[in-house]
Design a protein around this nucleic acid. Structure first.
Length: 398
DNA sequence: AGGTATTCACATGAAACTATTCTCTGAGTTAGG
DNA sequence: TAACTCAGAGAATAGTTTCATGTGAATACCTGT
């Protein structure tokens, strides 16, 4: 069979999907269910912007996948629409602070903001003050209200502290024309607690908490989306229910449920199955999970990978092992491949990060007279482990 | 036996350092008029 | 003289080292019975 033939067939085969973009996190439906109240509230708080008055700063809390980002985007989109038709000088900026190498430092955040005003800033080399100055100038060029959404703001402060936020809240005092309104979105419910009190009070003039979705709600959301995403009748009965159950199991994360459904669809399509079954959903869950881990490992520096390799080498012999054992093996590996050896301090941090990633299970225990250490075990299944080993060997060229 | 003090093997934190990548500046060089 | 080149100073960032301090309980060491 020629490759042409393959593509011919591919085209002839009817896809499951009408529009798979409906099942991505970028998609904003024209109607948001189970969040009417919050949408209303946000709209209420931000409405003064349409009269060219500065709205109160707003802070939104809620776990992942509870519709925070979606609701804010929805409100902003419709506000922008109205602003456009009525020629109201309003500008909305959405920034996700978690994005590596985009907006995860003070410098880059401001640089990103400047980009929204149509100017490029070099990625390094300029003093931060200078960048602030450029930003101020740009901001104050014309009279308008700026709504600035900072998504995953907790990640930002965790990494670089709250000085940026302090600067941002103080901007208004320095500006003559523009007023800027901050909308912070955080996954962490106790985020504001370890913030400078000045920032705290000015940032959360208004607060909003997004509750979790329950299983029936997620089911409904999935149904609504799947009607738009899939052709009729390709979903085996029970798939949506199971998908919702998955999501409800780990704290009502709707985004994950939606992702899962899409991946299940893609898997089913690739295997040429006539419909999307529960089996596909199970596979999808595994795939999503393992892809996440594999990708994050592949993106780590070589030294990380070598440490992980050491862990993998140790793991068949023992179920549990300690920091010291890994460090010793790691040192030997380093000598073998002639790399310089990192300090134990560093390895300790690396292990902590692996714990965060969910690759290992680490518990700090005290062995009394024999010290304190991490008790570590691998938390991956056989298949993923094999894949991971392969990835590491390739990446480290063993 | 029961109570206290030690001690181990790291954990955790803060600050400082290093290498890399980048900009900006201004001196020196070149080429055209 | 204008345009170009290129070294040097200064930044931001990621990854790391150095130095300092913290810590939980098994064991060693007492004490008084």
């Amino acid at each position: 069979m020629g490759i042409d033939n393959f593509f011919q067939n591919y085209l002839k085969k009817k896809s499951f999907f009408l529009d798979s973009s409906v099942l991505t996190s970028r998609y904003v439906p024209e109607e948001i269910v189970y969040r009417e109240e919050q949408v209303h509230e946000i709209a209420n708080i931000l409405a003064p912007a349409l009269r060219a008055e500065k709205p109160s700063n707003l802070f939104i809390y809620g776990k992942t996948g509870t519709g925070k980002t979606l609701s804010v985007r929805y409100v902003l989109a419709s506000m922008m629409q109205i602003a456009r038709t009525n020629a109201i000088p309003l500008k909305c900026i959405y920034i996700n602070c978690k994005l590596k190498r985009v907006a995860d430092t003070e410098y880059r955040l401001i640089a990103q903001l400047i980009k929204f005003f149509g100017q490029e800033i070099p990625p390094t080399g300029l003093p931060t003050d200078e960048v602030y100055n450029i930003f101020y100038k740009l901001l104050d060029q014309e009279k308008r209200i700026v709504l600035l959404v900072l998504d995953e703001i907790d990640q930002l402060t965790k990494k670089i502290g709250d000085e940026v936020l302090y600067n941002l809240t103080r901007i208004n005092a320095e500006l003559h024309n523009t007023q800027i309104c901050l909308i912070g979105i955080s996954n962490n419910l106790v985020f504001a607690e370890n913030l400078d009190p000045r920032v705290q009070s000015s940032l959360s003039e208004e607060e909003l908490i997004f509750p979790l979705y329950n299983a029936p709600q997620i089911q409904d959301i999935l149904r609504r989306r799947s009607v738009k995403a899939f052709r009729d009748g390709v979903l085996q009965p029970g798939v949506i229910e199971k998908c919702a159950a998955f999501a409800a199991r780990d704290h009502g994360d709707a985004r994950r449920a939606i992702d899962l459904l899409r991946v299940a669809g893609e898997l089913a399509e690739r295997t040429g199955s006539p419909e999307i079954t529960i089996q596909h959903l199970d596979d999808a869950e595994k795939k999503v999970e393992s892809d996440k881990i594999l990708n994050s490992i592949a993106a780590q520096p070589k030294q990380f990978q070598l440490v992980l390799y050491a862990i993998i080498l140790i793991s068949p012999q023992k179920k549990q092992f300690f920091t010291g054992e890994i460090y010793e093996l790691y040192q030997n590996l380093c000598k073998k491949v002639k790399w310089n050896v990192l300090t134990q301090r560093r390895i300790s941090d690396i292990l902590a990060e692996f714990d965060m990633l969910g690759v290992i299970n680490a518990k700090i225990i005290s062995k009394g007279r024999y010290g304190r250490t991490r008790e570590i075990s691998l938390s991956l299944d056989e298949v993923l482990l094999a894949k991971l080993k392969e990835l590491l060997e390739k990446s480290l060229s063993f």
